[in-house]
Design a protein around this nucleic acid. Structure first.
Length: 562
DNA sequence: GAGTTTGAAACT
DNA sequence: CAGTTTCAAACTC
């Protein structure tokens, strides 16, 4: 379903609508852009910068963004970006390569990124990107082009864009489908301001949106989509945000309406650098006042793992912050706690770290995989990526044509397990070994009788577990029901069953009676059978007394209530 | 729960 | 790249 209105189509360049070829999308004609990969290095000065990441309530283990007073690490695909404030004095130059574009990001003191700044929420992804204009002017350079998604509420995404002098913003929603769509804000051609775009991916439907100038919140509807002119920046309003609410419609892949969504992240790309010669460099850093804003204590990490299937590449590479937003999703996919003892959870031995997540409720010792040790964590991430640029990519990917849909990206190397135990990463992922596996004595292939037997056993076990679970649920339900029916107290007009009178005192008295009978039987040297009989008989008397008392109490109560 | 086995990750 | 060591999870008892 195309969620973009014809009206919008006429307003925006066709390529924006092409969600199938987002990487090759040329720039708007009104906004001259480079149509070649952007050089990632530039000596252009940094004008200003701001990266602002916050989370309202995202579960710690799912929100992946790390920011500190000194740096922010963002990774896209296998790329690691370390973003430092403009005033950072570090001279340690680092380079990372964007596997998607093949370009290199260099850092030296100040991180310069010829990339858009992007982030995502849950399975849908939002990419905010700052796109440099080839003809950007000094005025444009000075003007910030910020935006940030503040949070998500149900089907709505609240996006804050800080107004920029003379900048026009067009918001366009993506087409549905599996490929990324584009939600773009573009700079005003006349003012030659840098472009600014917002991208959504994963085929999520977003209702076309538009915001009106001024500091207000607007729910944007498809028919409202239009070009918006942000008023000239004034000192008084320069920091005041213009807010948009992007309303997300539900599609087959969407979150359920009941999903309690928490957001997310706010990202802001404020400036770009060189206006003419190297307009593709963007500087990101943290704002002065805050890092994690909305919800203290909530962890935010930038995951090097959660990579989109495709990332916008408008002549520039893309930074993507993957953010998971749903508490419900968290509970539905709890991460197994790690038990690392020696790795400080900063090596790929640690599953949490390997999945780009913070340790949370783990059993690890000396854990550094947390916000308190973000410097070390960032360094460790970089080390891993230096060693293997695909270290954080999912190991289970799509196989070659003609092969299974899913296969291990590297293949396993099992020698003794026959690839039929969870030691084997293929088996653990419930996929069969493939031609790239180097395993010895593999039994994890389609026709393997051992594998079939194991599968049958596993299926049977699963059925058994399901049955047991169902039985437990039913029993629990029955108990609850029984308790509910016996809970009503006298004052409510209901009656108590006799056993509710079996208090501690009554039990003690009953036991004393039974013991007394036992003593008598022993003293009179009665046979054991006779002793048991009198004890049971006494027990019956006790029960009758309890029942009788209960009935009497009920009667008394009824008369009182009358 | 302790000890063993296993194979990926890390190291040389 | 190959061999070795380290590590944490899987497994066994």
């Amino acid at each position: 379903m195309d969620v973009v209105s014809p009206e919008l189509n006429s307003l925006l360049p066709d390529e924006i609508m092409d969600t199938e070829a987002i990487e090759e999308v040329p720039h708007s004609q009104s906004e001259p852009m480079h149509d070649t990969p952007v050089p990632m290095e530039t000596d252009a000065p940094v004008t200003s910068e701001s990266l602002n990441i916050c989370s309202n309530a995202a579960p710690a283990e799912h929100v992946q963004a790390v920011t500190t007073a000194s740096s922010v690490t963002i990774s896209a695909s296998s790329t690691l970006f370390t973003i430092k404030p403009a005033l950072a004095t570090s001279t340690a130059a680092t380079k990372t390569t964007d596997s998607l574009t093949g370009t290199t990001v260099s850092t030296s003191g100040t991180q310069k990124l010829a990339t858009p700044f992007a982030f995502s929420a849950a399975n849908h992804q939002i990419i905010l990107s700052k796109v440099a204009s080839a003809q950007a002017t000094e005025a444009a350079k000075a003007a910030a082009a910020p935006a940030q998604v503040i949070k998500q509420e149900g089907q709505k995404l609240l996006v804050t864009a800080i107004g920029k002098s003379g900048q026009s913003i067009v918001l366009q929603l993506p087409q549905t489908g599996s490929k990324p769509g584009v939600l773009q804000t573009s700079g005003d051609a006349k003012s030659q301001t840098p472009q600014f775009k917002v991208v959504t991916i994963d085929g999520r439907e977003l209702k076309p949106v538009v915001g009106s100038a001024g500091n207000q919140v607007t729910t944007l509807q498809a028919h409202q989509l239009k070009t918006m002119q942000i008023p000239k920046k004034t000192p008084a309003s320069s920091t005041a945000p213009i807010k948009f609410i992007i309303t997300k419609t539900v599609n087959s892949k969407g979150l359920s309406p009941q999903t309690s969504v928490t957001p997310v992240i706010a990202g802001r790309v404020v400036t770009q650098t060189s206006p003419v010669m190297s307009p593709k460099t963007i500087t990101l850093s943290e704002p002065h006042n805050t890092t994690i804003q909305s919800v203290p204590g909530k962890k935010i990490a930038i995951s090097p793992l959660k990579t989109p299937s495709k990332v916008s590449c408008w002549g520039i590479s893309t930074l993507v912050l993957f953010v998971f937003v749903s508490a419900a999703e968290t509970t539905s996919r709890p991460r197994k706690p790690c038990n690392c003892t020696k790795s400080q959870c900063l090596k790929l031995y640690c599953d949490c770290f390997a999945n780009g997540e913070f340790c949370n409720n783990c059993n690890c010792n000396n854990c550094f995989n947390n916000l308190e040790h973000e410097t070390e964590r960032l360094k460790a991430i970089k080390t891993c990526l230096d060693r293997n640029p695909e270290a954080f990519k999912p190991k289970i990917g799509k196989g070659k044509e003609g092969e299974s849909d899913r296969r291990h990206s590297k293949g396993c190397n099992c020698k003794r397990s026959g690839c039929l135990k969870n030691y084997c990463e293929c088996y653990e992922a419930k996929i069969m070994c493939s031609s790239i596996c180097k395993c010895i004595g593999c039994k994890n292939f389609e026709e393997s009788p051992e594998r079939k037997t194991l599968m049958h056993l596993a299926d049977a076990a699963e059925v058994r577990v399901q049955q047991q679970t169902a039985a437990k649920t039913k029993l629990s339900s029955q108990i609850s029901d029984l308790l509910m029916r016996t809970t009503p107290i006298i004052s409510s007009g209901g009656g108590r069953l006799p056993y509710t009178f079996v208090t501690k005192e009554v039990l003690e008295a009953t036991c004393e009676c039974l013991l007394e009978q036992a003593k008598r039987a022993e003293q009179t040297r009665q046979p054991q059978a006779e002793a048991e009989r009198v004890i049971l008989e006494e027990f019956g008397h006790c029960l009758m007394s309890i029942i009788s008392s209960a009935g009497k109490a009920k009667t008394d109560c009824a008369s009182i209530n009358c």
